[in-house]
Amino acid sequence: MSQTILLPVDLSSSPSWEHALPKALEMAKGGTLHVVTVIPNFGSSMVGGYFSDSFMEQALHEIGEDLTKWVNANIPSEQDVNPHVVHGRIYEEIIKAGENLDVDTIVMGTPPHHMTEYLLGPNAARVVRHSKKSVYVVRG
Rank of each mutant, 00 (worst) to 15 (best):
P22L: 10
H61G: 03
G88F: 13
I39H: 07
V86P: 00
M108S: 12
H19V: 07
G64P: 01
T116E: 15
L6E: 02
P83L: 08
H130Y: 14
M46R: 13
H19P: 00
H84A: 09
I75P: 01
S131V: 10
S54N: 14
I94K: 04
L33Q: 02
R129W: 06
F42C: 11
Y136I: 06
L120I: 06
R129V: 10
H130S: 12
L119R: 11
G64L: 04
I95K: 04
K133W: 03
S14F: 05
G43A: 12
E65I: 08
G64W: 02
K23D: 08
I39D: 06
V135C: 09
T110D: 03
N74Q: 11
K133A: 02
W70H: 06
P76F: 10
D53G: 12
Y118N: 10
M1C: 08
M46C: 06
N41P: 11
A125E: 12
V35Y: 01
A28M: 01
V107H: 01
H19R: 14
P22F: 09
N82D: 10
S131E: 09
V36C: 01
G30N: 11
I106L: 08
M1S: 13
L11E: 07
K132Y: 04
I5T: 00
G98W: 06
L101K: 05
S12Q: 15
E26R: 09
E62K: 14
H130Q: 14
K133Y: 03
E92R: 13
D104C: 05
V38L: 08
V81D: 03
S12W: 01
L33D: 00
A24K: 00
L120A: 03
D80F: 06
D53N: 13
R139S: 13
Y50C: 05
P83H: 08
H61L: 11
P22D: 10
E18P: 00
V81H: 04
I95W: 03
S12M: 12
N123D: 14
K133H: 07
N100C: 04
N41V: 15
Q58R: 13
H19K: 15
S16R: 04
S131T: 12
S14T: 13
Q58A: 11
G64E: 02
F55A: 13
L101H: 04
G31V: 06
I5Y: 00
T4C: 02
P122Q: 09
V81L: 05
V86K: 13
S13P: 03
I106T: 10
L60C: 06
V107E: 01
V128D: 07
I5G: 00
D53R: 13
V86I: 12
G48I: 11
E65M: 08
S54W: 07
V47F: 06
S12I: 09
V137H: 09
I39K: 07
W70E: 05
V138C: 07
T37M: 01
Q79R: 09
I39P: 03
L119F: 10
I75N: 03
S44F: 08
A124V: 14
L120H: 03
P15F: 10
K132I: 08
H34N: 10
